[in-house]
């Protein structure tokens, strides 16, 4: 596999969230706004890249039977580093993401990549794989966060573009599930190469968005 292919496969084709359904808890729990989603994505990317590098370096020394606990310890170490660093330098963000920072350790993407890729490939390929997968995850969280923020509070990356409130349900729990459901549907259609249905779904989404904007007196 070429280096470029290793890097890009994490964005759409093997996107951790939209295609493989991994790491769904932080995906739903932290994407109340685009910034939060992006920050969570970057924290996960850091852990993913570092753990992939270390796992691929020590893969020949770890006996096969204890490899999973060993991987978990490596991952937990980097999660603790992220946790303490964020607590020290961005306490506000740490407060918002809260429980989901220590929970990076049980994010199935990270253990999954360590087991499926880093334990079989060299250091360079593993770090590229970690970076691609991590940025794909960050992209998914940012998109989900941006959509929820737009619908839920009428803002994007913190800049408000409507007066008044949005549909609060989209910032709360139900919106997370519903938006993610539609995003997964679109990704599945793209991966199947079904262009006609993709256009139909996208035009449907556009119609919903337009009527929503009309409802908020934005399109005048």
């Amino acid at each position: 596999m070429s280096k470029l292919k290793i890097f890009t496969k994490g964005f759409i084709k093997e996107n951790a969230v939209f295609a493989l359904f991994l790491g769904l808890c932080p995906t739903l729990g932290t994407t109340t706004s685009a910034i939060n989603g992006f920050a969570m994505g970057l924290a996960t990317t850091f852990v993913l890249v570092m753990s992939n590098i270390v796992v691929s370096m020590v893969k020949n020394f770890i006996p096969d039977k204890v490899r999973i606990p060993a991987f978990i310890v490596i991952i937990a170490t980097f999660v603790t580093i992220v946790e303490l660093t964020m607590q020290a330098f961005v306490p506000d963000l740490f407060e918002v993401l809260g429980l989901f920072i220590p929970l990076i350790v049980v994010n199935c993407i990270i253990l999954g990549r360590a087991e499926a890729f880093a334990s079989k490939n060299n250091v360079l390929d593993s770090s590229i794989d970690g970076l691609g997968m991590g940025l794909g995850f960050a992209m998914a969280l940012t998109i989900l966060g941006a959509i929820r923020e737009m619908l839920g509070s009428g803002a994007i990356f913190g800049f408000k573009f409507i007066t008044g409130d949005g549909m609060l349900a989209f910032v709360l729990a139900p919106g997370a599930f519903i938006v993610l459901g539609y995003l997964i549907a679109i990704t599945q259609l793209i991966n199947k190469g079904d262009k006609k249905t993709v256009l139909e779904v996208l035009s449907g989404v556009w119609k919903i968005a337009r009527s929503f904007l009309k409802f908020l007196n934005f399109s005048k």
Binding site: A169, I178, I186
Partner: peptide
């Protein structure tokens, strides 16, 4: 609908369930 079969519709239903729990 074809595009929503499987996991996507499961998420939408979970969203409605979450709405009920609210």
């Amino acid at each position: 609908p074809k595009g929503m079969k499987g996991v996507p519709i499961a998420f939408v239903v979970a969203g409605i369930l979450a709405l009920a729990f609210m």
